[in-house]
C-alpha cells in the first residue's frame, strides 16, 4: 500500500518514512504545496499524511483539491496548531483524522492503520495476526477462534501493539495513547505495567504465543518474528 507524506520539515518527513516504510507501506513524499498537488493528481494513495502549514499553500487547499478530483484517499492531518478551527475545518474538508505535533510515531502509525481499515474495509474488518483475530467493529478478540475477555484498556493496548508490531513502543507513547497527557509519568508507568501484565496473562491463558516483550528501561514490543 502506498502512502503519501506531505510535510515541509525534512527531518520529520524522514522519521515518518523511516518508521512507516516497512513491508506494509511504500512511502512517497512531498515537501511543498505544488509537489503535493502534482502527486495527488497522478496517483492514488491508501492514506495521505498532510501537514496544514506548507510552503506555497495551505494543506486545507489540498483537501479541497482531493474533493474536487473526487479522490477517496484517506487523509490524516498533522498540524503544529492544536487549534479547534483547524481541526474542524480539516475534518469538514474531508480529512479522516487529526493529530497534533509533537506526536509519537507509534500513534501516527496506529492512526494511519485505522484510517486505512475504515476506508478499505468499511470498519467491518477483522484483523488477523497468526492466532489472534480482532473484530474491530465489535471490539472482540479471539485466540485460535476462542473469544477472550479483555477490558477496554487491554483491548486498546492490544490493538495499539498490533498496529506497531515488531516496533519498540515507549512507555510515554503507551501512556499518552491510553490516558492522554493528563497523568504524571511516574503514576502511568505503574498502570501500564499492570495492564500489560494482565493482557499478557490473558493471552497466555488462551494459549497465545508470548509476543509481548518488555524492553528494559524503554517500553514494550509486540514481536511476531
Amino acid at each position: 500500500m502506498k502512502i503519501l507524506i506531505i510535510e515541509d520539515e525534512p527531518e520529520l518527513l524522514n522519521s515518518i518514512c523511516n518508521y512507516l516504510g516497512n513491508d506494509n507501506f511504500i512511502c512517497e513524499t512531498a515537501t511543498n504545496f505544488h509537489l503535493a498537488i502534482e502527486k495527488i493528481s497522478l496517483y492514488e494513495y491508501a492514506c495521505i499524511i498532510l501537514d496544514i502549514t506548507l510552503p506555497g499553500g495551505s494543506g486545507l487547499e489540498i483537501l479541497h483539491e482531493l474533493k474536487k478530483q473526487q479522490k477517496a484517499d484517506g487523509v490524516l492531518i498533522i498540524s503544529a496548531k492544536n487549534s479547534l478551527d483547524d481541526k474542524l475545518q480539516g475534518l469538514k474538508a474531508g480529512a479522516d483524522d487529526y493529530l497534533t505535533k509533537p506526536f509519537h510515531l507509534s500513534e501516527l502509525s496506529a492512526r494511519v492503520e485505522a484510517i486505512i481499515r475504515r476506508k478499505y474495509f468499511n470498519g467491518n474488518d477483522v484483523i488477523t495476526l497468526n492466532e489472534i483475530s480482532i473484530n474491530i467493529s465489535q471490539k472482540t478478540v479471539e485466540i485460535n477462534n476462542t473469544p477472550i475477555d479483555l477490558t477496554k484498556k487491554e483491548y486498546e493496548l492490544l490493538l495499539y501493539f498490533i498496529s506497531n508490531k515488531n516496533k519498540v513502543i515507549s512507555k510515554n507513547a503507551i501512556a499518552e495513547h491510553l490516558w492522554g497527557d493528563d497523568m504524571d509519568l511516574a503514576d502511568s508507568y505503574d498502570f501500564i505495567y499492570t495492564h500489560i501484565k494482565n493482557l499478557r496473562k490473558k493471552l497466555l491463558q488462551a494459549n497465545c504465543t508470548d509476543y509481548l516483550k518488555s524492553i528494559y528501561g524503554m517500553g514494550y514490543k509486540f514481536d511476531i518474528h
Binding site: 520539515e9 503544529a80 505535533k101 509533537p102 510515531l105 519498540v168 507513547a173
Partner: peptide, 20 residues
C-alpha cells in the same frame, strides 16, 4: 508555542526511531 511544536515533533520521532 506553535514554532516549538515542529522541533518537538522531530525530537520525539527521532527518539522513537532510536529505541528501535
Amino acid at each position: 508555542s506553535h514554532e516549538l511544536q515542529t522541533p518537538l515533533a522531530i525530537i520525539r520521532t527521532k527518539l522513537d526511531l532510536l529505541i528501535q
